[in-house]
Computed example of a mutant assay.
Amino acid sequence: MPRDDKLSKWMLGLVFLMFIGGLLVLNTGAPIREFSESENRMLEQLPSFSLEKGMNGTFTAHFEKYLSDQFVFRDFWIGVKSEADRLMGKKESNGVYVGKDGFLIQKFGKPEDGDLEEKAEAINGFAKSLPGLHTYMMLVPTAASVLEEKLPAHVTGDEERTYMEKVKEALSKDIAFVDVYPALRSKKEEYLYYKTDHHWTTRGAYYAYQELGKQMGFTPRMQADFRIERATDDFYGSLFSKSGFRHVLPDSIDLYLPKDDEAYSVEYASEKRSTHSLYERENLKKKDKYTVFLNGNHPLIKITTGSGDGKKLVVVKDSYANCFLPFLTAHFEEIYVVDLRYYEDRLDELIQENHITDVLLLYNVNTFLEDPSIKELASQR
């Protein structure tokens, strides 16, 4: 082999080793991030080791996820990979489909065997331990099933619908299941889900609110009762960031504001602060503009309205509920909003101490199947 070829290969190898070494140094020195604003989720933290975790493989699984989540310049590398995938004609990246008409759609993830049943058992036991309480479950379908026609060829929403039906069948008959799929599906031509984000739009939440009124026995407001305000036309959501696909247009966010003035008190318990608005408009200047609704996720929020003839509601929820909650203020005197992912107190005590009359569990189907905190209801009774 000529000397020049050997030297070129040696130099190339050296550059590669320096690149890998540089990444290693950067990763070692980079601060540990707890939350990804671009992906709108908590990032994996360094797991603790035990002999049991080492033997059953859970430590390895969590450590691999930790390395992936904390990798330096993570967002940049996701974008590079996704752009390469797009140029090669691939329709999926990082669990996100590139659908028709500019839609990015979250891929459905099957739960582990027995996980669904364990969560249903926890919910059933919790509801049974509080007799006299009216309990409702709203499991919201995602765009993958409601907007099935937007999915790439040969991909369907059947699996998501199948698991939704399994949840419904596993719940006690004493828990009212609020099935919003038919209502959303009938309006599929409307703007029900964001194209770049995994959430439903305020319009999608409005149609689900109509269905909840039928189950709970209150008369929901009509669209004519609201002043619909366009909050932004420049929203790029979680699926935009997660997938790395960049050749899509931004979404818009609408607020449904009652035409008649209403007074609220909104208390953020963990932050020990209160406000008189359900919206954090300053967040429209941030990356995650969806947090305009109640400033995002919090362990506990108390909304006092003065409406609802003394009825009091606890909403156990994920972030799908954030744009849904403003519709409920006309029907309940107090609304307690609990996110089990962050709430550390006993839920049964909150219910009993505040004389709660109704409980609504509101989750999108993906979060319900993924979130282990729901199982903690089994210990809160």
Rank of each mutant, 00 (worst) to 15 (best):
D4P: 00
L14H: 08
F16G: 07
M18L: 15
I20T: 11
G22R: 07
L23N: 11
V25R: 08
L26I: 10
L26C: 01
N27W: 10
T28P: 03
A30D: 12
A30M: 06
E34H: 13
S38M: 12
M42D: 14
L43C: 02
Q45Y: 02
S48Y: 05
S50V: 10
E52R: 14
E52P: 01
M55T: 11
T60N: 10
E64T: 10
K65H: 12
D69S: 03
D69M: 06
V72K: 11
F73Q: 09
R74I: 07
R74G: 06
G79P: 01
K81D: 14
R86M: 02
K90L: 15
S93A: 10
G95P: 00
V98Q: 11
K100D: 10
D101H: 12
D101C: 02
G102E: 01
L104K: 06
Q106F: 07
E112D: 12
E112W: 02
D113T: 13
E117F: 07
N124K: 04
G125D: 06
F126D: 06
M137A: 12
P141V: 08
T142D: 05
A143M: 03
E149D: 15
K150A: 01
K150M: 14
A153P: 14
E159K: 10
M164V: 13
E165G: 09
V167Q: 03
K168R: 15
V178G: 04
K188T: 15
E189F: 11
Y191Q: 02
D197V: 04
A205V: 08
A205Q: 03
A205L: 04
Y206A: 09
Y207D: 05
E211V: 14
F226A: 06
I228N: 09
G237D: 02
S241F: 09
S243G: 09
F245T: 00
S252W: 12
D254H: 10
L257T: 13
K259W: 00
D260A: 15
D261M: 12
S265C: 06
S265Q: 11
S270E: 15
E271I: 07
E271D: 11
E282L: 09
V292G: 01
F293C: 09
L294M: 14
N295E: 11
N297C: 03
H298W: 10
K302R: 15
K302I: 05
I303C: 03
T304Y: 01
G308H: 05
G310L: 05
V316G: 07
A321V: 05
L328W: 00
A330T: 06
E333D: 10
Y336C: 01
D339I: 01
D339E: 09
L340R: 06
Y343W: 08
E344C: 00
L350I: 04
L350V: 05
I351P: 07
T357I: 04
F368Q: 03
E370N: 11
P372R: 02
L377Y: 05
S379R: 11
S379V: 00
